[in-house]
Design a protein around this nucleic acid. Structure first.
Lengths: 165, 165
DNA sequence: TATTGTTATACTCTATAACTATA
DNA sequence: TATAGTTATAGAGTATAACAATA
């Protein structure tokens, strides 16, 4: 018999629960702010923000999906909404006829701009008010390896399914 | 004019993005594990875990809702599912005829027990593998004030809506 | 044959408002 | 009148599988 029952110690359990609760509350607040300020869901905001930051304001569907959405059809759905709202355009990729290149429109950039200040404000108020600059640095240093670890680790949990998409 | 445009510095932005991504990936993995191991959603697991930990295995709807769900009807829906699955029972509260007391059944406790080891394993592997015990302590110390702050702060964002429920 | 993306479909979850019953 | 909970209903989002087109 090996140690078939891995245990969380009290500290680990506390960290896990606090992490989930904190992000849950933050996400809920941010969702509301984005909805009220710009009629955007969080996923839609993430997609727009990525496009806004990428060179030319464009990206292929597949690259856009990365990390934002867990299924291909989910992205098609969201991109369809954004297109219908006039915030992005979709066109066949020049180099690969199979691909679709999504591009943020001027209206899309405006929308991101309209929403960002309130977004920052919510985050500052809820997350960073009780943290010193040093705390933030420390937190960054702790989260970075976790993020890297999660990105590097294929889900390999029970059954090994496909990565995402 | 006051500083109407609060800014996130680079560290803060990094912490925020890392936090959201990390919890997103973790939640997704945990969701899958709970579904596969016990056919439970995360919300359902949270509700069962609370009942399992509370004295007598019971709680009132209102108290159960706290922090798990954002609307009353959402809880009614989830409690209905759990009841249909035989994992909880619902009965009028003895002291307050308006209230409903939810109680976990033996089957409910078994289900929690069946799901917990795998749950712990996912968390250990994804979240704590890259963190030392000291790191975990530090993280706990940073998250605690944030959690307290968020709990204490009414959403008071744009419009002041009701707290939750 | 493998990859990109869309569509159809079905399902889960959530929230709002109207309603009932008890305090 | 206020609180506890349910119901009806409608909407947003997600995932799976089948499909078309290109590499």
């Amino acid at each position: 018999m090996d140690d078939s029952t891995p245990r969380l110690d009290a500290t680990q359990l506390g960290v896990y629960l606090a992490l989930v609760e904190v992000v849950d509350l933050l996400r809920h607040a941010v969702d509301q702010q984005l909805r009220e300020a710009g009629d955007l869901s969080y996923v839609q905001f993430q997609l727009l923000a990525r496009l806004n930051a990428s060179p030319g304001g464009s990206a292929r569907m597949t690259d856009l999906a990365d990390g934002v959405v867990y299924s291909r059809s989910g992205l098609t759905y969201q991109a369809g909404l954004l297109e219908k709202a006039g915030l992005v355009t979709r066109a066949p990729s020049p180099d690969d006829e199979r691909g679709v290149t999504v591009t943020i429109t001027d209206a899309g950039r405006e929308r991101v701009g309209a929403v960002l200040p309130g977004h920052a404000e919510v985050i500052l108020r809820m997350l960073f008010e009780p943290l010193s600059p040093t705390d933030a640095e420390t937190l960054a240093g702790l989260l970075e390896p976790v993020r890297a670890h999660m990105r590097a680790t294929p889900p390999r949990s029970a059954a090994t399914r496909r990565r995402r998409r």
